[in-house]
Design a binder for these strands. Structure first.
Lengths: 227, 227
DNA sequence: GATTCCTAACTAGTATACAAGTTCTTTTTC
DNA sequence: GAAAAAGAACTTGTATACTAGTTAGGAATC
């Protein structure tokens, strides 16, 4: 388990939530493994209370499953939950990119452009930096549409999805993702909701291609009835 | 504050969450009022711990705002959050009713039909029973589409929306809501996604009509910049 | 009288202690 | 030796105690 330092501005509970989340998404904590509150509390140098509260929040998105008096099970990769997370993101964000065509100000477009510049910069240099930039690109679109609470809800569920994104191979795919973002940006800039919708759906469809490969490769992490 | 008995199958935390939620949605706890953990714990006959955890979960949907070392503020009715909740419901459930046309089995249709019978039965007898039936009608559609996790996320945000639904007057409106549900059901039964989509959007549009009236009537509960 | 400062009474965040349930090992029993 | 019973060693749920920060009121000061 990877333990970054505590940010002084965050509470112990927020710190515990952040560290556990990151380790689950990065697969440093293996799907299907059991984690104990005491064990994590000791590693983080905290008492059980903030760790308990962090796990409680994580259990709401079913990324962990608290088994009373037994322990806390980190969920296996579950195709049904990934399907739900993907459905939610596609449905919500498709509507958002359309709205963004109307709502985006010059400053908003500049923020997106700046994010895209960084994506293109890191594309060949340090692809690991792409995922946070990708996440932020989508987050900016929520902010443009004043839907930050929706963003929080969608993010929570997206953890299932993010964990698999980490398994996908980089290289060619990264190139396409960045150019997808560029296409979405152009459509918003041109205030063309039809093009924005099309570009976004093309973007999200890329994931489907990888799913079968990932299923083969990492089947020890994938729960039962996933095809 | 209205305190129903504790269901033996629920934990103290779940009990606290249920009671606080219900009292906020029913407006028995007034928007804008402060509530203390100790105060609620005493009323419910619990310690602060489960109440604290319940409030923590409620704060995630911004229905309460925890002010550290000060207290817990029950949020004012906030038009921005209602707009988000409505956006999320409309966006997600519009997609769902389309999918339901394909996915609904005979047993599913029967469950919807049964719910509709009850709605029509209580329409003139006991309109207060309509809201749980309404909620359940929508929940069944999530279940048909295997999107229960989405349902949980949408429900959490819908609390903002539900609190206002409680303010809307009954009578004529109830009649229309029940017939809307019937129309959605018929479209799903006929496997007609276009009709389902149209019926659902007409259904959700009814709310807009009430908003201005409610704003006038209950402005003491409504936060700042709501028009 | 108005202002400043200090103290006492609040609050939520967190640590610790205990209760209750699960699991696995050991001991007893046949 | 096999099976059943007992108990020790875990787990999370919850109560309690303490910490630290906020607020309000009264005393001291000008």
């Amino acid at each position: 388990m990877n333990v970054p330092p505590k940010n002084p501005s965050e509470t112990n509970r927020e710190y515990a939530f952040r560290v556990i989340s990151e380790n689950i998404i990065s697969l440093d904590i293996e799907p299907g493994s059991m984690i104990g509150e005491q064990e994590i509390a000791t590693v983080l140098g905290l008492s059980r209370t903030p760790v308990h509260e962090a796990l409680l929040e994580l259990s709401k998105s079913k990324i962990v499953d608290i088994l009373p008096q037994k322990g806390c099970l980190v969920s296996m990769i579950d195709s049904d939950l990934i399907r739900e997370a993907r459905f939610l993101r596609i449905t919500v964000e498709t509507a958002l990119v359309e709205d963004a065509c109307e709502l985006a100000t010059e400053a908003d477009l500049q923020e997106l452009e700046e994010n895209l510049q960084l994506q293109e910069f890191y594309l060949n240099k340090d692809p690991l930096k792409l995922m946070p930039l990708d996440n932020n690109f989508h987050k900016i679109i929520y902010r443009i549409c004043n839907k930050m609470q929706c963003h929080y809800m969608v993010s929570l569920m997206s953890m299932h999805f993010d964990r698999v994104r980490n398994l996908s191979l980089h290289s060619v795919k990264d190139l396409k993702i960045v150019s997808d973002h560029r296409a979405i940006y152009n459509a918003i800039k041109e205030k063309d909701p039809v093009a924005a919708r099309a570009a976004f759906q093309k973007h999200m469809a890329r994931f489907e291609l990888d799913w079968n490969i990932i299923c083969q490769e990492y089947k020890q992490y994938i729960s039962d009835g996933s095809k």
